[in-house]
């Protein structure tokens, strides 16, 4: 650039204007597409006659207000409802914990097998990756509903479904983490004649362990949400209680369950952030 002369300036300026114009066009196209999609969406919703779009907004507060009114009628007795649903909450948390634990374990194994820098065989890497992709791509609900149909209503189908999704999601993150490690400890171990397992144990795991752990905690929070939703389609736990109460229109109980859910998710969020902060420091 040092030999840029004055003649080049107008060339540069022309180019700059051209780029600015191009960017404007792209922006306009994006906005146009968005408006178009929004329009299509609104017409589709109106056509399905599922309630008018504009009326929906005015109705927005009706339901929450209704819930709170019913709750205030209860007075202090409402807290007993909260207590009543706590065991169901624990059953949901247990579902999430169990599937996170199992998913984490398998994800560590598959994540290592899917990392190009520690596994020589290209076939193993490719097969593991495809398997992880498929496990990750299915929404938990799809697996869970099929398993629920086959195994009857219980916690186990949901646990299996969430575990499978967890393996896929964590496995991919883990394999990326392993691929980004510093290779020098690995080379050192290889030079000293360490076996493959020893290389993984002493060369890879110490480097990625904090990251794995923080991903696992994040996943735990996601799995509590997922387990609740699966309860909704019949897997038991607090989701099923919520679905029943909604059918019966018991506003106070609905709010009690929502309260428990929000409390759990928020506290898990803070807990996982605190632990992550302690383990891997500021950069998370």
């Amino acid at each position: 650039m040092s030999d840029t002369t004055y003649q080049n300036y107008d060339v540069i300026e022309r180019r700059l204007n051209e780029m600015a114009r191009q960017r404007l066009i792209y922006t306009l196209i994006t906005i146009g597409v968005f408006v178009l999609l929004m329009g299509v969406g609104i017409t589709m919703a109106e056509e399905n006659n599922a309630g008018s779009f504009s009326r929906g907004f005015t109705n927005f507060f009706d339901y929450p207000v209704d819930l709170f009114e019913q709750t205030f009628e209860y007075g202090w007795g409402w807290w007993s409802l909260v207590l009543k649903h706590t065991p169901e909450l624990f059953s949901t948390i247990n579902m999430a914990l169990f599937s996170t634990l199992f998913g984490f374990t398998f994800a560590v194994i598959l994540g290592v097998l899917a990392a190009r820098n520690v596994v020589q065989s290209k076939i193993v890497v490719a097969v593991t990756r495809r398997a992880l992709d498929i496990m990750r791509s299915f929404p938990e609900l799809v697996f869970a509903m099929i398993l629920l149909y086959l195994m009857g209503r219980s916690l186990l189908p949901a646990v299996i479904a969430v575990t499978i999704h967890t393996i896929g999601a964590l496995g991919k993150l883990f394999s990326e983490a392993v691929e980004n490690i510093d290779d020098r400890p690995l080379e050192g171990l290889r030079a000293s004649g360490a076996s493959w397992f020893q290389q993984i144990r002493f060369g890879v795991l110490p480097q990625v362990w904090p990251l794995f752990f923080s991903y696992g905690l994040l996943r735990m929070e996601i799995n509590v949400r997922a387990s609740t939703i699966l309860g909704f389609v019949g897997a038991g736990g607090i989701g099923e209680a919520l679905s029943t109460m909604i059918q019966w229109r018991y506003g106070a109980e609905i709010l009690a369950i929502m309260f428990l859910l929000v409390l759990t998710i928020t506290s898990l969020d803070y807990l996982s952030r605190y632990v992550r902060f302690r383990m891997i420091g500021e950069q998370s």
Binding site: G41, I42, M44, A45, N48, A50, G51, F53, G56, F57, N59, F60, D62, Y63
Partner: peptide, 8 residues
């Protein structure tokens, strides 16, 4: 509850 079953 507000919009009924549908896209929005």
């Amino acid at each position: 509850r507000a919009f009924g079953p549908g896209l929005f």
